[in-house]
């Protein structure tokens, strides 16, 4: 075995090892495929290309409607046992309120005002959303897959509550930034920390959206295949 071939094998094996659960099968397919490539250089470039798969993060694959149904059951069970602890978001509004009255400058007072409205609004929305789900889950669910599908669709829609939640997060973060006496120049590290948290929140929301979109696509594909099979 030549050096290039050995290197290609090592790269592809490493890709299989570090690929996300949903891409392991694909990475393994690429590793095996490399053995059918006659030219060593082509096998090497093939292996280099397989590194791209490491950037694709996917959950463990679902192979059948039964597995999708298990996923839906897990989702329902997890949420059924959950206690609505969203009220814990409210005490922080009270702390902001105390500081609001003790604020020394108008800008800091505006900051606390924004933080109060942001945290209150966030608490109310999370509380209402949890209560809505609890109500649905307390009733008998005929088809857990369809219930799960509806919840995924709902999470992807731009609802009033969704917009308000994003606005309240923006209000809360901007408000906290304004309460820093002396501004960003006086607290560069703290400001950077707050900024990074807000970027992370946005990235997490986008990530959750993409994951839900993918789950919905998989679920729809299985349901469609199942309908076609029962129709023919």
């Amino acid at each position: 075995m030549t050096f290039l071939r050995r290197l290609a094998l090592k790269i592809s094996t490493a890709v299989v090892k570090y690929a996300s659960p949903g891409c392991k099968e694909w990475a393994l397919g690429m590793l095996h495929e490399a053995e059918f490539i006659e030219s060593d250089f082509s096998a090497f470039t093939w292996a280099l290309g397989s590194i791209r798969v490491l950037l694709i993060r996917r959950e463990a694959p679902i192979h059948s409607l039964a597995e999708a149904s298990d996923m839906a059951s897990k989702y329902v069970d997890e949420r059924r046992g959950r206690v609505n602890t969203s009220w814990t978001l409210f005490p922080q509004s009270f702390l902001f309120l105390i500081n609001f009255f003790g604020a020394r400058t108008p800008l800091v007072r505006i900051g606390y005002g924004m933080a109060i409205s942001g945290s209150l609004c966030m608490g109310i929305i999370v509380f209402l959303e949890r209560r809505r789900q609890d109500k649905l889950l307390s009733a008998d669910i005929d088809d857990e897959v369809l219930f799960y599908k509806k919840e995924l669709e709902r999470s992807l829609q731009l609802s009033f509550r969704g917009v308000m939640l994003i606005l309240s997060i923006i209000f809360l973060i901007t408000g906290i930034s304004l309460t820093l006496s002396g501004g960003i120049e006086a607290h560069p590290i703290l400001s950077l920390f707050i900024g990074s948290i807000s970027v992370m929140i946005v990235l997490l929301i986008l990530h959750a959206r993409r994951v839900n979109q993918r789950r919905l696509q998989i679920l729809e594909a299985f349901l469609q295949n199942d309908n076609n099979r029962s129709g023919s």
Binding site: M30, W46, G49, R52, V53
Partner: peptide, 11 residues
């Protein structure tokens, strides 16, 4: 297509 372009499409 190179493997790095092809496989993400196949996935």
């Amino acid at each position: 297509l190179k493997s790095g372009t092809l496989y993400p499409i196949l996935i």
